[in-house]
Write a protein that binds this DNA or RNA. Sequence first.
RNA 1: GGGGCCGUAGGGUAGCUUGGUCAUCCUUCCAGCUUCGGGAGCUGGAGACUCCAGUUCAAAUCUGGGCGGCCCCA
Length: 467
Amino acid sequence: MEKESNFAEWYIEAIDRAGIVDRRYPVKGMNVWMPYGLRLMRLINGFMRDEMARTGHEEVQFPVLVPEDQFQKEADHIKGFGANVYWVTHGGLNPLDVRLLLRPTSEAAMYSLYSLWIRAHTDLPLRLYQIAPVFRYETRQTRTFIRVRELSFFFESHTAHENFDGAEEQIREDLEIWEHLARKYALPALFNKRPDWDKFAGAHYTVGVDAYVAAPGRAMQVASIHQYRDNFARVYDVTFEDRRGERQYAHQTTYGISERVLGAEVAIHGDDRGLILPPEIAPIQVVVIPILAKGAKGRILAEARAFEGEIADKVRTELDVREMRPGAKFYEWERKGVPLRVELGLDEIEGDHVTLVRRDGTRRRKVSRADAPKRIQAMLDRIQRDLYRKAERELREGIHTIDAYGDAPPKGIIRAGWCGKESCGLAMEDKLNRGMLGTPYFGEEFRGRCLECGDATDTVAYAANSY
RNA sequence: GGGGCCGUAGGGUAGCUUGGUCAUCCUUCCAGCUUCGGGAGCUGGAGACUCCAGUUCAAAUCUGGGCGGCCCCA
């Protein structure tokens, strides 16, 4: 299993061997979440819920089915999603008068209710989110977690504000939320304002949150944020009475994240032995493996149980008492990405210590039995930080600033001047053989020339192949 | 949208060109014994030719179609 030489195959194999999803479900692009994978996603989603709670959003749950007439209201939106929706055309044997579709995203489902819920400026801002499945009939090749037909865990936050600035403020908060999540997920990323030709269907503008997968040298969008202005409010009639008693359209934003995050975890942190999970999202943070020896089985087991019991209230643990040789267990837990392993056998008992092994390293270290619980927590914190830093370094080193096409390396993210003209941007995409990620949302100091036309510009653009 | 390729056990595969004995090997799974500091061993057992039709004495193998999957180009 070699990540560097054959990334695509490695990725699939790493997922299969970790037991996250079963890909054999007989519908293309739809996977079955197995217990370990579900625990992982619940931890990942838990941090989104924490962030939503911290920032005062509330959770809701809308139906999966959307009536066709609701969906048809926003022209650009249909253009973007029309070819990718699953239709429900019959109720039993009878054709439906109004066809229903499985939501590919929930604007159409939610905004008809938003127009009822929002009456006056006192109802704003309205900030709701849900984590629920959405369906997209993808015609391109599907890829587990990255491009699927059923997104099992689609986080989507939909906010409504009194005016454009209110929505802008929301977007800044969304990006700050990502910074928090990024620490938990160990997924540093760039915030790129997408070029107009690549924005979300119906949006005023889109910000992509782009992580970087070093092995294939490709970007991976792990979150998207959209400024709708009043585009959707006008078609779904989301209006309110302002302070002066005048009717106004609400300004809206959305924030979307999915199990792609898990795809990024696998792709970015994994190695030839399998997954490496950041401790924050690891269903099992510490696995305790007793090394049984003839004649001392009972004693070793009792000791391992006692030790696990001591740390179990502080970290998520698993005591592996199965009838397997230790080596086989090591490999298995490594495949599953468990960040820290404790080995406990006769050696440890006699020396009054335990042996700790980090998943993201190879060194074994002996730690005194008394200090071990505290040391374990410190090591988990350390692993979390180290994984973030490693990904951050890979991202930084993956960016190549160039001022001539000839300088573009075969892999990685390109950073270059862009005058902002669409014709130049498209030409750059073509000649770089990369998609435009866009321009940094918060801007960057830059003085240079447009890579295509040579005009002086103070704007940089990023381009990369992406997932 | 256009073109190409492929469906053999839970996973990975050989066999297919040139039809012919009990469909190969690895892994996995089950039972027992045994072993336990990096994928142990022994014995026994379980498990597959994508579906339909055709050609033929005989089809995993040839032909056609369905279904499913993969890749490349636009």
